[in-house]
Every structure is written in C-alpha cells, then in structure tokens.
C-alpha cells in the first residue's frame, strides 16, 4: 500500500509536529510529546475534558482539542492506546481545578492506561470521572451495549459535554451530559477497502475489489456481512434501518446526522448518501438538526463511511449549537 511518509517509526511524531505547526492553537506536550493540549492552557474554574487513543484516525482524537470541545488528548502509536504516562500528563493538562472527565472510546489499551493514570492521580486528590464511547451497534448486541466500541459518534459526546463544561457545570453535570450523548447516539460503518498500519506486514483486512463489508470497525474489526458492493441508496437504506431499529427509548423527533468518511471515500459520495439518508429520516418523521458531512473519524486510507444518529432533546440540541472551535470543526 502506497504511503507518502518518511519512516514508519516517525509517522506519529512527524504528523503531530505538522498538526501543531499548521494549528498554533494546539501544543505538543507530555512524555515523548504525546499529549496535545490547548496552547492557552486549561481554563481555571472549568471542568476539564480529556480524551485519547491511537493515531491513525484524524481528526480524532487530537483534532478535537479546542474551546467548547476537548481540553487535552493523549495519543498513542497507530491503532495503539496512549501510554499511562501520556494519559496522566493529558489529564493534568486538562485540569482547571474542578475535576476532569475522561471521555474516550471503549478499547482495551485505552481503558487500561486511562484507568491506571486515574489510580495514580486520584491519590493526589484530583477528582476524575469516566465516560466511554460505545456507539458502534455492529460491535455487540443491544443487551451488551457496554461492550460496544466507540467510533464516530463520540464527537457528539465531545461537543455536548464540552458545551456543558463551558457553561460552568460541575464534573457530575458534565459527566452526565457526556453519558447522555453516548446513550443517545448510534453508529454503523461499512468499508470498501482496507488501510494498512505503517510498517505492518499486511493491510488491516482483505476484501475483493467488487465487495463491501457492513458493520466493520475503524481498525478493520469484522462486520455483519460481506457481499457485492451495493448502490449508495441501498447502503444508506440499510444503515438507516439498522440505526432506527435501535432508536433510544424515549427519544423525540429531532436528530443530528453525521455521515463520516473513513478516509478515502470522497465528499461527493458522502453527499450522495446524505441525500438518501435525509429523505429516509424525513419519511420516518424525524427532523434533522445540524447535519455533519465529511471526514470526522477516519482510518487512514480506508475506503468507506459511517453513519451516526444522535437523538436529541432540547438541552442536547442547545449544547450542540453552542459555540465551539477546533482545527476541523467550528460551530457558531
């Protein structure tokens, strides 16, 4: 697989250098420079929000550091969790004196290292809470929702919790806002072609040129079915049907939609899908609020898309519309 890189061993560090050079609002910090934080530092008196995970998913995770979103991020090697030291440094960088929410996807390495970091820091008296992104409906059955992976839908939790923190809410209130955003968000992805970790022997999975796979994860985790590539409308219909089948209990009629590229799929194809998705949601009696179309959570050169639906209530809708700014997403 062709990649425009210098050395696989320098892939992450050179990427982070470039990211911060292009966006002076971000600063590299922490052990081995594997923390990205807001250049202006944590805002005193505000609950901090920290995230983290493996590289290879830009704009996730580092790209969402900014006002109204996330305060700091620990970043690991490609598809590897961040180290415990970088998790500790990121938590400290996000700390404005009112506690820190750890908000990240449900993956083993991320969980272990954020947990260990918390165990060390709680001894120092820092108040912490945790919310895990678990929006990928293809990764476990509804009765095992807590085992699901976090994928693109986590950006809704960043936005809603970030806005709540900006309002001056307490750690418990920010945590509740993040947990509600996770609870109200559903995502499903599909892939047309794999990606390959720099330096790895093989692509993350193999798929024939004529095939697609529904339900695949952002690291190439296996999906629900693999078959001949279908037309965009058929793909959109199936994704909408699967997500609506898991509509959260008590949800209303307003929903935000994220049509996300996994990396190689162009905006043109995303809009072809969005056209159909919007029609289907309208027919289902759902009003679309603040649609998002573009690359929000990728897997390097993987071809494919994910669809996320965030079922809103009035408070979530207000928080989603509140001002926020990061290198890849601006609201207000």
């Amino acid at each position: 697989m062709k990649k425009l890189i210098n050395d696989p061993a320098h892939y992450v560090d050179e990427m982070l250098d470039g990211l911060c050079a292009a966006h002076p609002s971000l600063t590299r910090d922490g052990p081995a420079g594997r923390v990205i934080r807001r250049t202006e530092g944590a805002r005193a008196g505000k609950v901090g929000i920290v995230t983290g995970g493996g590289s290879g998913h830009l704009p996730l995770f580092t790209g969402y550091v900014g006002p109204g979103l996330v305060d700091a991020c620990s970043i690991g090697n490609v598809f590897e969790g961040p180290t415990v030291d970088s998790c500790m440094a990121a938590i400290k960088a996000a700390d404005g004196g009112r506690g820190v929410l750890r908000l990240y996807g449900n993956y083993g390495g991320d969980r272990m290292n954020f947990d260990m970091a918390g165990e060390f820091l709680e001894d120092d008296g820092l108040e912490l809470s945790t919310v895990l992104g678990t929006d990928d409906i293809a990764s476990a059955a509804p009765e095992e929702r807590s085992k699901r992976r976090g994928v693109a839908g986590i950006v809704y939790a960043y936005k809603i919790a970030g806005a709540r923190a900006d309002e001056g809410a307490s750690l418990a209130e920010v945590t509740a806002a993040a947990a509600k955003a996770v609870e109200r968000t559903r995502t499903i992805g599909c892939a047309l072609a794999p990606c390959q970790i720099p330096g790895a022997a093989e692509p993350s999975f193999r798929i024939a040129p004529s095939e697609m796979e529904m339900g695949i994860g952002i690291h190439g985790e296996p999906g629900i079915w693999r078959d001949t590539l279908k037309p965009a409308d058929a793909v959109a219909d199936e994704m909408v049907d699967r997500l609506l089948a898991e509509r959260p209990e008590g949800s209303g009629h307003r929903v935000s939609v994220l049509v996300n590229s996994l990396g190689a799929t162009p905006l043109e194809e995303l809009f072809i899908l969005y056209r159909r998705i919007a029609e289907r949601l309208d027919k289902a009696g759902l009003a679309v609020v603040q649609p998002l179309v573009g690359p929000f959570v990728t897997s390097m050169e993987m071809a494919g898309v994910s669809l996320s639906l965030c079922f809103l209530d009035d408070k979530m809708e207000r928080l989603l519309a509140a001002p926020a700014s990061c290198p890849f997403w601006r609201v207000g």
Partner: peptide, 15 residues
C-alpha cells in the same frame, strides 16, 4: 514497557 506503548499487550506486560 509502559513508556514504549499503550497497547493492551504492552500494558499487560508492564503490569
């Protein structure tokens, strides 16, 4: 080991 990686296997080795 903990400084070199945050992967599950590496973190378990460090543990």
């Amino acid at each position: 080991a903990a400084a070199a990686t945050g992967s599950s296997l590496g973190t378990l080795l460090a543990t």
